[in-house]
Design a binder for these strands. Structure first.
Length: 119
RNA sequence: GCUGUGGUCCAGACAGUCGCUUGCCGGAAACGGCGAGAGGAAAGUCCGGGCUCCGUAGAGCAGGAGGGUUGCUAACGGCAACCGGGCGGGCUUCAAGACCCGUCCAGGGAAAGUGGCACAGAGAACAGACCGCCUGCCUUGUGCAGCGGGGCGCGACGAGGGCCCGAAACUCGCGCGUUCGGCCGCGGCUCGAAAGAGCGCAGGUAAGGGUGAAAAGGUGGGGUAAGAGCCCACCGCGCUCCUGGAGACAGGUGCGGCACGCCAAACCCCCUCCGGAGCAAGGCCAAAUAGGGACCAAGGGACUGCUCAUCCCGCUGCGAAUGUGUCGCGAGAGGUCCGGGUAGGCUGCUGGAGCUGCGGGGCAACCCGCCGCCUAGACGAAUGACUGUCCGCCUGAAAGGGCGAACAAAACCCGGCUUACAGGAUCACAAAGACG
RNA sequence: CGCGGAGUUGUCUAGCGGCGAAGACGCUUGCCCCGGGAGCAAGAGCACGUGGGUUCGAGUCCCACCUCCGCGA
């Protein structure tokens, strides 16, 4: 068991921090999504998952974009030992439902997509 | 009291759990403990500054910005007070002006130059005679009034038309009003085959009609052939002088009979201001690789504009028994240090034109003094999730249920402006004048 | 952070301060054809991003705002 999986923290090492790390996921990984969020993932061989977030300005203003990122971060933090050793990049869907989703709806979507990835 | 306008303030509160960024403390580290952690607009990036680097003798040209006055300010296109003007209202009055109240104003210059003023109208910027009015002349030229048509304007009008409804334009009709002028007829004359053309001439006159956004001062009186600032009074306007004011300006005397239409958010002129770039500025530390320089080690030369490559001599190793010389073969071509500098890291980075309270100055904007306080500093970029109590709002008869992120998030820092915003608190004003 | 440009019918563009805002494509109807396309003819079409201001008069000039596109570090 990797030590990062024994707690509920979210360190800087558990995030994607530069363009190279993002590009690896987009070029070598797979993707799936529903009407609220889209997930790209790829195995990273580190023994723990890492999270990346991409939210374009088309999603909304700065407050709405930050709120989306914080909620996804919270969901990732509380479920990170169910994801496996993967890099995961989460984007909001372009569908209008994505814009005013509640925290429960986002968490529900994320966990459903997670089972699809495991399968 | 209601309502409206403007200013100021708040932007649910408290407690807890799991997390995020950061300061201090402990620790070798992992990590732990204690504390701090978005806004009134942080936004738009529309102005102005600080700060940093670069440039710079001084001045000007070009370009850009501003524009009543005085003040405030680090500065401003900001703010305050005042001045002037427009609009609306009140009072007085026949009506206005003056006076009072509210509100708005990018509010220098059109007597420096250039340019524009469509349509209508006779004439539109050293104006202009269409009708009318007046005078004179002749070859005496639609007599006057009216009615109708046509034209034009108006209409909670009708029909058509019309994007779903319903308007507008447009067409037709109806009604009302209006029309300088034969634009036409009732209704003429001359010329001409007809179509059609014409139906006094020369002057004066800017009062009247009519067009227009605007017609070249207004009202009243005198005057005249009719008229006219032609003359006079008042008002307006311009100029001189005097007085008051810090000034914009205001008041007054005198003069001028009117010159100076409007547009500078048209070119332009005048005055004032502006060197450029921006924290990805700038500074410090500084890997790998490549390249530069110096010294040491053996390097030097030829070729070439220079470099590489190539060639020659030399060095080092091996071989020809050995030494000197000579010949052959092969290999090596490095080490140390220095500076620039990329990735990366650190810094700039938050204590400041700072905030609070009290006192003082000023009509105010704002300024001065003293006490106290420290209040975000991230960099794929920190505030999220959940629970409870109270509070507010919505719904409901109640119990209960729902909502509480409305707008919108620092990115070097300030001062403004502009724009967005659920709801709440609070203060000021609402007059002049009249009535009770 | 610093800048630039553009918003005019369904689409793409014109448009001296004075209009019923113009053109092409598209659309509708008719002719032609067995039918379609092309061609010819006729026709319809309430488009000046929003709000103020200057002016007698604004699509045009000025100011503020909104939206979109683009550039530099």
């Amino acid at each position: 068991m990797h030590p990062y999986l024994t707690d509920n923290k979210l360190r800087k090492e558990e995030k994607l921090l530069n363009k190279g790390q993002f590009d690896l996921v987009f070029e070598n990984g797979s993707s799936t999504g529903n009407k609220r969020i889209v997930i790209h993932w790829a195995d990273n061989g580190l023994g723990h998952p890492r999270l990346g977030l991409v939210v374009s300005t088309r999603y909304g203003n700065a407050v709405q974009r930050n709120r989306f990122k914080r909620r996804i971060r919270e969901i990732f933090r509380t479920h990170k030992n169910e994801i496996g050793a993967r890099d995961v990049v989460v984007l909001p869907s372009k569908r209008p439902e994505a814009r005013d989703s509640t925290y429960e709806e986002l968490a529900d979507s994320f966990l459903k997509l997670l089972t699809r990835i495991e399968g």
